[in-house]
Design a protein around this nucleic acid. Sequence first.
DNA 1: GCGATACTGAACCGATAGGTTCAGTATCGT
DNA 2: ACGATACTGAACCTATCGGTTCAGTATCGC
Lengths: 109, 109
Amino acid sequence: MVSKLDNVLVAISDPTRRSIMSRLARGPARISDVAAPFSMSLTGVCKHVRILEKAALVRRTRHGRENVLHLTPEPLRDVARWITTYERFWNERLDRLEDFFIAKKERPK
Amino acid sequence: MVSKLDNVLVAISDPTRRSIMSRLARGPARISDVAAPFSMSLTGVCKHVRILEKAALVRRTRHGRENVLHLTPEPLRDVARWITTYERFWNERLDRLEDFFIAKKERPK
DNA sequence: GCGATACTGAACCGATAGGTTCAGTATCGT
DNA sequence: ACGATACTGAACCTATCGGTTCAGTATCGC
């Protein structure tokens, strides 16, 4: 089973796809518009878009022959939530470090 | 140039590696210990560990023949920070949605 | 209707990712 | 000193990824 989180993490692990996302953050755009700044074939960009769609990070609405893409970044929240499970852990690490310094301060060499 | 963020995102995009991370969140462990639950060769796990090290998500300390791994999840903060640049965006989306419903309510069909 | 535009699908390609096995090195326990 | 343990490196294999080209379909503007 390939989870939802997996699709999202795979999607954002590629720099070209992150670049597409940042373009779409400035507003909806057609595939051709998105592709323009890249020195890459339209077909190549199309494939990346498909992967972003699979991760639900991008939605497409057809208007005639045009495919307008817009960013739907909500799935990133799943990633953020996954990360917070480690936040607790690194806070504990900081706490231990703090304890260490307090102990050191109270009982100096 | 391959950024730091890229290493981290690539590292966490694999389920096996996330699984290793969650194991190490329960405490430091040797590579063999980490490998034990997996139906995978030790060599395979070693490779994954290397990728996690490259992303600075795991640190290794040798004690004789043993390699003790412990989690250093701080680089995940870079990912969290990257995500927050889209948080603003999805809040605006929610605002627009809210505006839409308010407008709808005030001027019904 | 016709040519330009906006994609899409299929076939292909090289590189890399994820895995294996096997042979080697270093260290530990006895 | 010797066998078991804990890895590591190299070679290899397969599938997938990121990219291409080319040919096709649908739609638009005129």
